[in-house]
Amino acid sequence: MEDLNFIPSDREVRLEPNQSLIFKFSNEYKLEYVNDFFTDFTGYEIHDVIGEGVEGMKHSDIPKLISSMLYESVENKKNINIILKNTTKDGRFYWFLTDFQYEIDEENKLLSFKYYRRFPSKSAIPTLEKLYKKLLDIENHASIEVAEKYLYGFLEEKNMSFSEYTAFLSKGEDFKSMVQKVETSQNLPAGKAGKKSWFRK
């Protein structure tokens, strides 16, 4: 994964409402399983990614702060529903909505987790793009700590978590039903459908 030095292009590939990428990770963050659609959509072979992480597919437009929020959520076994940009093997980009599901044992220890990348709300993207650009500029000119303070103040002013803000931009309710529609249409493992709460903090 590390030596894929492609140049990001301006071309977008779109996830459709009935499509999602599914990753299953071990408690050591190694990729154990990925669905076939991942190969169709991103152009990566399954053997390119199994046993690895997914850092190599990060898009340079996404601030480090936002990626670190994702890791922090996983560390805390919390779901986080935010919209991110990633790259395909040929350098194109796609937007997706993150969604996590954790498998834990009786002692609350992480066994594995699933990372779903779902169809994002188009209406949310222009606003998020501007916010990410601001954060990235702050990271580059000042520091990631300054960017973090900015985002904290930004969300505090709105009294929302980042997931809630994403839902707000995505016009929440429509989106909730969209997530559930995806779950049913893809015949996900039992126990998944209907379990998610979009508005959970």
């Binding site: 601001k134 500029d137 702050i138 580059n140 000119h141 000042a142 300054v146 960017a147 900015y150």
Partner: peptide, 8 residues
């Protein structure tokens, strides 16, 4: 100013 100039 821009955010990146003023923050911090």
């Amino acid at each position: 100013y821009e955010e990146y100039e003023l923050m911090g």
